[in-house]
Design a protein around this nucleic acid. Structure first.
Length: 475
RNA sequence: UCCCCUGUAGCUCAAUGGUAGAGCGAGCGGCUGUUAACCGCUAGGUUACUGGUUCGAGUCCAGUCGGGGGAGCCA
């Protein structure tokens, strides 16, 4: 009876928030044992977490409790239901605790010696190997709540500003998304592939009657809806089959891609800035408990960093200006592995120097040379740059990549031809420019990189529940 | 994918080519309204895997797999 969920149960978050106001109240809490200590004075102290907040509730089991003997044998990880009265705590560190009248062991831990989550610090690398149990740790519990908070804050921001959430497809038949290697989606028998006259796999016999992939971006699709609903965004999983082995890359990650009509690059940058400020403000307000933990144990500066970010405006500079400042740094004696020249695609070392040393906070770099950017980015009047922007953040690099889109059909076609792409493949994308085209712009925000920036966690693999990376799709 | 580093007890790490060690965690006992508890005792190992060199390999060599840092690609 007591071990099943009821919506009238008090969460530990609620109990701790109420604090002294809850003294004298009867309550039931359901959760997992973090630590269990026994005092020979005749009480057992059980720290219980239900994940509703960072903190644990101290459940005190007195000797006269019928479950006293059983509670002495509780170990880290046991699932329990505790009934009792909320009382002032006699110990330090909490204003309220539960004096247990009953404590039910719902699920025991088979062998406490080999339970993978011990009441002691673990390395993140180890915890990735026990990803099914790592949500029970302080860090990953906090990550889970922060991740949810940021996701909700993003939806809230867009909703308040009149954006519509568009569910762009996960499976795509476009072979023209152009953002790197894609995962194939097929129901064909790999051991017995149907082949056409040319000996190649015959995708006409495949599920969709053509070759399909997992999406690498919802941008091209969401542009269609932008040119009807004006302000739209996608927020969903994205897949890249790149063999990238870094702390900043996942094969499956989540991306937010707003797209706004009747907008230029400046409006695009304004939107990016407003979005990030809004969600970081919500994060500090709603998850102060978790953020204090990150500041305490992961990255001392993370709260201060977000506060500064909210207060200050983005540093914005043109690509040309960024190059000038990097060249100036070179003249003053800073050595780069790759020399700085106008027209180059900035290397990590340049981006890091720019955002970490020259600016000291996130910076928006705008108007890149056209030759290093995608075909759909709008050509500027100078004929050699496009209206593209990257938001670079210290320690992470590119957190946002965006642009004003090329809305002029003739210019778009020229760009497609220049890059050796097949215009026929883009027929519906080109149609947008034939029927009621308008200036529009958008960007992609990497969700995991945003969480890394906010929390100070060092690796995107540790801010997603189950990371997918090359040679790793366990759990 | 490339460069560098790395893989030893449940976890974090020691160990000159010569008997496998500590701390934490775990179990038991002691002490204690405790909360990074403290004190004592005990258990716990095919040194990632495969092969090679050697009288002898955790240690040296090769390959495979995993992990980390950096690079490329990007979010």
């Amino acid at each position: 009876m007591t071990s099943t969920t009821s919506t009238t149960d008090l969460s530990i978050a609620r109990i701790l928030a109420d604090g002294a106001a809850g003294h004298g109240r009867k309550a039931v809490v359901k959760g997992w044992v973090r630590t269990c200590r026994e005092s020979k004075a005749g009480v057992v102290f059980v720290a219980v977490s239900d994940g509703s907040c960072f903190g644990t509730l101290q459940v005190v089991v007195p000797a006269e409790c019928p479950d006293f003997e059983a509670s002495r044998r509780l170990t880290t990880g046991c699932a329990v239901v505790a009934r009792g009265e909320l009382v002032p705590s006699q110990g330090k560190g909490q204003s309220v605790e539960m004096r247990a009248e009953g404590l039910e062991l719902v699920g025991a831990v088979e062998d406490p010696d080999t339970y993978p989550i011990q009441p002691k610090p673990h390395s993140f690398e180890y915890l990735r190997e026990v990803a099914h149990l790592r949500p029970r740790t302080n860090t990953f519990g906090a990550i889970g709540r922060v991740r949810h908070c940021l996701a909700m804050a993003i939806h809230r921001f867009f909703d308040r500003h009149g954006f519509f959430w568009i569910h762009t497809p996960i499976v795509t038949g476009s072979d023209c998304e152009g953002a790197g290697q894609m995962f194939k989606v097929s129901t064909l028998d790999l051991a017995n592939l149907p082949r056409g006259a040319d000996g190649r796999p015959d995708f006409a016999q495949d599920f969709f009657g053509k070759q399909t992939h997992l999406t690498v971006s919802g941008q091209l699709n969401v542009e269609c809806w932008c040119l009807a609903l004006s302000k739209v965004y996608t927020f969903g999983p994205t897949f890249r089959a790149e063999n990238s082995n870094t702390s900043r890359h996942l094969a499956e990650f989540w991306m937010i891609e707003p797209e706004i009509a009747f907008a230029d690059l400046r409006a695009d940058a304004d939107l990016a800035e407003a979005l990030l400020k809004s969600i970081f403000k919500d994060l500090l307000e709603e998850r102060g408990d978790d953020m204090r933990f990150f500041a305490d144990r992961i990255d001392k500066t993370c709260i201060e960093r977000l506060e500064k970010f909210i207060a200050a405006s983005f540093e914005r500079m043109d690509y040309a200006e960024a190059i000038r400042r990097l060249e100036e740094a070179e003249r003053k004696g800073h050595k780069f592995d790759y020399p700085v020249t106008w027209g180059m695609d900035m290397q990590s070392e340049h981006e890091r120097f720019l955002t970490e040393v020259l600016v000291g906070r996130p910076v928006v770099v705008m108007n890149y040379p056209k030759d290093i950017k995608a075909f759909y980015m709008r050509l500027n009047d100078d004929g050699r740059t496009v209206a593209a922007m990257d938001v670079l953040a210290p320690g992470i690099g590119e957190i946002i990549g965006g642009s004003q889109r090329e809305e002029r059909l003739d210019v778009l076609d020229r760009r497609i031809a220049e890059m050796g792409l097949d215009p026929a493949a883009y027929w519906w994308y080109r149609d947008l420019r034939r029927y009621g085209t308008v200036p529009h712009a958008g960007f992609g925000l990497g969700f995991e990189r945003t969480i890394v920036y906010a929390t100070g966690m060092a690796n995107v693999r540790d801010v997603i529940p189950f990371p997918r990376t090359p040679r790793n799709a366990d759990f």
